[in-house]
């Protein structure tokens, strides 16, 4: 089965079983997202992919495409709501971009740029989140976690190691390492694990790699994440 729906007034075809976000992407249309990853089932935690259908908010990464629906995505209202979500993520962690090795490669930062987030607007929590540099090849900077659980899922489902988990609730939610000591060095984590290479922000960092790419040449320096992704999507389809 297949059909089509309207995204911001333009037709998008879909195959049965596709979500709104997947169908949009396949049609070369961009809906912002953070916790979603093409190789994993939807997580539905960041809500950046929010769209409106019939006046109701839906997470487009999880909502199935349905024949004939009218989906709003690129509207001033939804842009403002997405910006507010990003602002909350910034104040709930400690995001000091100038000293972050992920800067210029970071999806959270790139989304904030694209949504013209000029400040985090809310009061900062400054939660204490000590780093873990115990592992010979990887450093964990917990200050920047957005709780997408991509590392948790990759480690458990692909690497077969179950190195990470989330613990706590609300502002106390944080990423933990599944070892008695809580230290990454005391796990069988390795730098070529998928979990070591999937974090969309600057938590799971490879040692001795930082700041290799000069400012100006990093993925999101010149072009917004929507354009970078659509270009990459085109390449992926060719492969």
């Amino acid at each position: 089965m297949s059909g089509q729906f309207q995204l911001d007034g333009q037709a998008v075809p879909f195959e049965d079983g596709q979500t709104i976000l997947q169908a949009a992407r396949a049609a070369g249309r961009y809906i912002p997202h953070l916790c979603w990853h093409p190789d994993f089932p939807p997580h539905g935690s960041c809500k950046l992919c929010v769209v409106k259908v019939g006046g109701r908010h839906l997470s487009s990464c999880a909502a199935p495409a349905v024949e004939g629906i009218e989906v709003e995505s690129d509207t001033a209202e939804l842009r403002a709501e997405r910006r507010a979500l990003l602002q909350m993520l910034f104040v709930e962690g400690n995001h000091f971009c100038p000293s972050c090795e992920k800067s210029g490669h970071c999806q959270l930062q790139a989304q904030a740029y694209e949504h013209e987030m000029m400040s985090a607007r809310f009061a900062y929590f400054y939660p204490p989140r000590p780093v873990d540099a115990s592992h010979p090849d990887i450093v964990l900077d917990f200050n920047r976690c957005i709780f997408c659980e991509l590392c948790v899922r990759a480690s458990r489902e692909v690497d077969g190691k179950n190195v990470f988990a989330l613990s706590g609730r609300g502002i106390h939610k944080h990423l933990v390492v599944n070892a008695e000591s809580g230290r990454l060095a005391d796990t069988d984590f390795a730098a070529d694990d998928l979990a070591a290479n999937i974090c969309p922000v600057g938590v799971i960092l490879h040692k001795r790699q930082g700041f290799r790419v000069p400012i100006g040449e990093r993925p999101y320096d010149a072009r917004p994440i929507s354009r970078v992704e659509l270009a990459a999507g085109g390449r992926e389809a060719d492969e």
């Binding site: 910034f90 400690n94 995001h95 000091f96 971009c97 100038p98 000293s99 000029m118 400040s119 985090a120 900062y124 400054y126 939660p127 204490p128 989140r129």
Partner: peptide
């Protein structure tokens, strides 16, 4: 106008906040 990282989010000096 808040100019720069420190005025906007505390910046480097705020790294002492924890």
């Amino acid at each position: 106008v808040a100019v720069g990282a420190c005025a906007i989010n505390g910046g480097l000096p705020a790294q002492r906040n924890h």
